[in-house]
Structures are given as structure tokens and as C-alpha cells.
């Protein structure tokens, strides 16, 4: 049974009303209220009522932004720029499906939420580096990493799913990626290979709590048991990632979940078990990570992590944290 239910001071009627109004499990709303308070929870739930605008990332391996924009404008698309990422475009108007244009099929862009640009931008992969994407399918971030590496060096793309690795391969091919090695495996075993790399992206499998707007069925289908199960898997993947980094290597941890157990708790556990530190993220003015949730206190450095919310950032719920390894571990 969950420990937070029946918490002192919580008005059960109000949380039940919210759960009913927005179609969530009551336990989920109770958790939200404990984390964010009633006012912020109500704003969050309202935020999840509206789907975020679609966005695309220009694939510079194939085309430059100006040329793509001109072509898409001619087709009747209207875009808005994003202050903090020059190759990203928010779609204001799409006369037809973004996923069926010749430009899409040619790999000139990737349809990707604006939140999902952040982990790769913070990872900041450079040409000729060795990078691992521990949970890569369908390849939104992997193709972005390859782009920033200018298609040089080596990018290991791992995924456990037989179906999803096909999409990964297809997307890497569509985007013209040459520097990838795709491996279908349980990424928890990657450190057994004893490969030490410069940078790692762990865009972890998660409960998808942050996707309530995009997929409303999640509102009732995900419960605390899912979150706990995910948290354990995430810690194991995090541990593999840390063991595969060179000294001073960087690991970016991200999820599309807002639950502290899948985010701050994983990093807090990592800080207690490995020689790592959290680095600042200066990309934009997003909300800080939590330093406490429910009855737990987390490492104060967790405020350097970033959280994104639908009602504040017009995105899905998202978490990202930048980790530096201070000493190699095996």
C-alpha cells in the first residue's frame, strides 16, 4: 500500500473532485497535491487538457534550416522559432500531415517535442566522440546526437524492444546517420562490455506520467506500482551508464515523467552510490528539480536538475539532469 494516502491536511473531497473532473486515478491526484500543492496541481491538470503544439527539429545532416523553412512556407506551413534552439521550429499551422511530406521522408526533419531536444542539447555531443544512447528507439534523440556529432565518431544506440529497434533503424537511415551501432539488448548489461565512453544519454523508460495530454488513457492506466517498478529499472540503467563512462564523462538522465521516484530519487540514489556530481543546466529558465517530496529529502544539488510542465512551459511533463563522473568506476 502506498504510504502517502491519508496524509494530514489533505482534503479528500477536493482531490476526488479533481480526479473525477479530469479523469485521473484518485491516488495520482493525491500524489500531485502532496508534491505540488492544490493550486499548482489544478494548473497542471488544466495544462494537461491541451495538447502541446507540434514541433520539428531540422536535420542539418541533410538540409539547412533556411532552405527547409522556405520550402515548407511555400507548402503553407507556418512556424514559430524557439528562443533557445535555433534548429527547432514550433508548428503554428500545418495544412497537411507533417509525417507525410517529401521533406519528412527525405529526412530533412524529425517530428519531436520541444522538451525532447533538451537532453541532447545538454549532452552536447561533439564530432569524433564516443557516445551511448542507452534507450534509443525510435531514435528522436539518437538522430539528434548524430547530427551534433556531424555524423562522425561512434554512437551506440541500444534498445531492448524488437519492434522499436526497427523504427530506430528506419529513422537513422531516413536521417542519413552513418556513425551508429545499433544493438538490441537489455542496456543493463552494457557495462559488462567494459567500454568506456565520453558521453551517455539515458532517456529512461518511464511511466510516461508527463504524457497525460498526448495520451489521456495513461491517466487511469498508470498507478504507483508502475512508478515504483520503473524507478528500480531506472536505477539499474543509471548504474550501467555510470560504469560505462570515462572520468569526467557526462551522463544526461531524462524522463517524460514528473514523479520524483523516477527522477530525483534515481539521481539521489546515484549521488549516494557513485563518485558523481550534478552540473548546472543553463539552456533556459525551466523549473528546478525537487529537493524534497513526500517524506523524503533529496540532495540539495538536485535543484540544478530541470523540470518542465505543461502549464508553465507548454510541453509534456519532463525531467532532465546533467551528471559528471569524477572518477571511473567498474
Amino acid at each position: 500500500m502506498t504510504s502517502y494516502i491519508g496524509c494530514v491536511g489533505m482534503d479528500t473531497r477536493e482531490t476526488k473532485d479533481l480526479a473525477e473532473k479530469y479523469g485521473y486515478l484518485h491516488e495520482t491526484i493525491e500524489r500531485y497535491v502532496q508534491i505540488f500543492g492544490l493550486k499548482e496541481t489544478t494548473a497542471l491538470l488544466k495544462g494537461y487538457e491541451k495538447k502541446p503544439k507540434k514541433s520539428i527539429r531540422v536535420n542539418e545532416l541533410k538540409i539547412l534550416k533556411d532552405e527547409l523553412v522556405e520550402r515548407m512556407l511555400n507548402k503553407g506551413f507556418i512556424f514559430e522559432n524557439v528562443e533557445w534552439y535555433n534548429n527547432g521550429l514550433i508548428i503554428e499551422k500545418a495544412p497537411f500531415s507533417l509525417g507525410s511530406t517529401t521533406e519528412y521522408l527525405s529526412g530533412y526533419y524529425f517530428i519531436q517535442s520541444i522538451a525532447s531536444w533538451i537532453p541532447t542539447l545538454v549532452l552536447d555531443p561533439k564530432p569524433r566522440e564516443i557516445v551511448v544512447d542507452l534507450a534509443a528507439a525510435p531514435g528522436g534523440k539518437a538522430t539528434h546526437i548524430a547530427q551534433l556529432m556531424r555524423n562522425t565518431g561512434l554512437l551506440y544506440c541500444l534498445d531492448i524492444s524488437r519492434e522499436r529497434i526497427k523504427s530506430l533503424r528506419s529513422n537513422l537511415a531516413r536521417c542519413g546517420v552513418l556513425n551508429s551501432v545499433c544493438i538490441r539488448m537489455d542496456a543493463r548489461k552494457f557495462s559488462n562490455y567494459d567500454i568506456k565512453v565520453d558521453k551517455i544519454l539515458l532517456d529512461a523508460p518511464c511511466s510516461g506520467e508527463g504524457l497525460m495530454a498526448i495520451d489521456a488513457s495513461r491517466r487511469k492506466s498508470r498507478n504507483f506500482e508502475d512508478i515504483k517498478r520503473m524507478s528500480e529499472l531506472q536505477k539499474e540503467l543509471f548504474s550501467t551508464g555510470i560504469k560505462s563512462l570515462k572520468k569526467d564523462g557526462i551522463l544526461i538522465y531524462s524522463t517524460c515523467s514528473t514523479s520524483p521516484e523516477e527522477n530525483e530519487e534515481v539521481i539521489d540514489w546515484g549521488l549516494a552510490n557513485f563518485p558523481i556530481k550534478i552540473e548546472n543546466i543553463t539552456l533556459n529558465d525551466f523549473s528546478p528539480g525537487l529537493t524534497a517530496a513526500f517524506d523524503k529529502q533529496y540532495n540539495p544539488d538536485l535543484k540544478k536538475a530541470k523540470r518542465l510542465y505543461p502549464h508553465r512551459d507548454n510541453t509534456e511533463g519532463f525531467f532532465v539532469c546533467k551528471i559528471k563522473l569524477l572518477k571511473e568506476v567498474s
Partner: peptide
């Protein structure tokens, strides 16, 4: 790392 058996590499 010959013990690794990739699903694919580079561009087919």
C-alpha cells in the same frame, strides 16, 4: 568488441 552483435551499423 567482437563479442557485441549489432542489429545494424552505419547506413545499409
Amino acid at each position: 568488441y567482437s563479442q557485441i552483435t549489432p542489429y545494424s551499423t552505419g547506413l545499409g
